[in-house]
């Protein structure tokens, strides 16, 4: 039983980070940016390049990979979304376009690295740590800690920094933000760059846990979207949504079978959306 609890914490960590990342982007540019899934995958593949192929020491490889992924993410924003934000194009079209960009990213990675599963680690496989009746590998522990740290960072930034104030204002009322002289452009740039770093790092942690294939980004992102939709606006709500979703999935996997994980997650989403009261549902207040 405690194993289910631990498994829940682990996957919740991933969901929460992605959910928060997506919601930050959403506040900035007002649409669900699916190309983030490509950045999630780009991180570990950059690691493959820097750490495995070029044999750069671990610490620097990490930094280069996250920076590179983050730059790629910003370039996507600059080349494509920037031209069309906040005016003519509906969030729907941007959402669909971001799908297209994800497809391009994923297939470019496939061409460069091949479709075969790749491993970054070259350490011995060891038994996990026993923690109160449940097994936990070191990397999974890192994942949990990472998500906690990330949540704190987001909380601090959002409420204690000027940038955070700008982001919140843009998120709630864009015209007001503009008229108050908030530097929208700068805020968006910062958002994209930082989210890129954190999400690619998350991808690297994930890859250390379960190895990587080019197509793994979409699954995780969808979990993040579910968490964001169910969670709604507040950071706390997203965390709770992440834990609930993760719990439901892991309980279901234990009792029904792990091949139904996705179905459980999407059934929850479907149920939630079908149960909405008669009003326009918005992810941001």
């Amino acid at each position: 039983m405690s194993q289910i609890f631990v498994n829940t914490l682990i996957s919740a960590s991933f969901f929460i980070v992605i959910g928060l990342a997506l919601s930050l982007i959403y506040r900035a540019v007002k649409f669900f940016d699916m190309s983030l899934a490509g950045i999630f995958v780009a991180g570990p593949y950059c690691m493959l390049f820097f750490y495995n192929s070029l044999c750069i020491p671990l610490f620097f490889a990490l930094i280069f990979s996250c920076l590179l992924s983050s730059i790629i993410y910003y370039v996507i924003y600059f080349a494509i979304y920037k031209r069309f934000e906040h005016n003519a194009h509906s969030p729907l079209s941007l959402l669909l376009a971001s799908f297209g960009i994800y497809i391009i990213l994923q297939n470019v990675i496939s061409i460069i690295f091949g479709d075969r599963i790749m491993t970054i680690r070259n350490i011995h496989i060891q038994e996990g740590i026993l923690l109160g009746g449940a097994m936990l590998t070191p990397i999974q522990l890192i994942a949990i800690l990472y998500s906690i740290i990330f949540v704190f960072i987001v909380l601090i930034i959002m409420h204690k920094t000027k940038y955070g104030l700008c982001l919140r204002t843009i998120g709630e009322n864009f015209p007001l933000a503009q008229s108050l002289g908030v530097s929208v452009k700068k805020t968006i740039v910062i958002t994209y760059l930082t989210v890129g770093i954190f999400v690619s790092l998350l991808g690297i942690i994930y890859a250390y846990d379960v190895d990587i294939v080019p197509t793994m980004g979409m699954n995780i992102i969808m979990m993040g979207i579910i968490v964001m939709i169910i969670g709604g606006n507040g950071i706390m709500k997203i965390i709770i949504a992440g834990i609930i979703l993760s719990l439901a999935i892991n309980l279901g996997a234990w009792y029904i079978g792990s091949e139904w994980k996705e179905v459980i997650a999407f059934a929850i989403l479907l149920f939630y959306l079908l149960m909405q009261p008669r009003a326009s549902h918005k992810a941001v207040n």
Binding site: M222, L269, L270, Q276, P277, A279, S280, H281
Partner: peptide, 13 residues
């Protein structure tokens, strides 16, 4: 009851 992007997610689900 929902905006169009949410309908897209419903169909995705």
């Amino acid at each position: 009851k929902v905006e169009k992007q949410y309908f897209l997610f419903i169909t995705f689900a």
